[in-house]
Amino acid sequence: MNLDFTVVPRMTDLLLWGVMWTVILSVLSMVFSLVLGAVFAVVRLSSYRLLRWPVQAISWVFMGTPLLLQLYVVYFGLAELGLNLNAFTAGVIALSLHFAVYNADIIRAGIQSIDTGQYQAARSLGVSHLQAMRKVVVPQALANVTPALGNMMIALLKESALVSAIGVMELTLSAQRAISQTFRPFEFYLAAAALYYALNLVLQQALRLIERRAALTR
């Protein structure tokens, strides 16, 4: 077997394009999955059954089925129902929901670990349940669960490769394109893997900074 990595630089533009879309796809999905996760967590802990049950159902579905199938259903399935999403949007929706339900469980545990005195102190000042959660309880819960959520974000970045299956030209699909032009699978799969690894190194550094900031203010 002779590996020849000199073919890789010839496809730099294609790979960088892929990196760019992987970053955009992942960052958007991270933001949505965290915001949705926090909302789901608060709803799961609320006393409104009418809100709690749909969220509970969403968690079961998105935790109990493979992400790949979720992508197919959101992209191809909804199209059959007349909802034509472009592949990128479908990818963001599926990734966001899939990770939101995991984030929700982590955040819920974080919220339950906050001393009830915090909530009571906020309510004793006359602020509403939602204000007390949003300003007092959830921020502290998030600070406590930052490491766990960080791990989910790293997983999300890697799992975003599955979105190639519905034709989004992200890093994995652009590597496959490069392979179909050069017939060099090993080189380009390794190059793509190295690029994912590099992206995650950057992400880990960012998470470390966030964790340190969260720890500083207490």
Binding site: D115, G117, R123, L125, G126, V136, Q140, R218
Partner: peptide, 26 residues
């Protein structure tokens, strides 16, 4: 509750806010 102030045994200050922010929040 706006008109009934309460102070607790264990302070229950909001640890993620400065002293000033604790006072201005509500």
């Amino acid at each position: 509750r706006r008109n009934i102030g309460m102070v607790f045994q264990h302070f229950n200050l909001f640890p993620h806010m400065t002293a000033l922010e604790n006072v201005t929040m509500a």
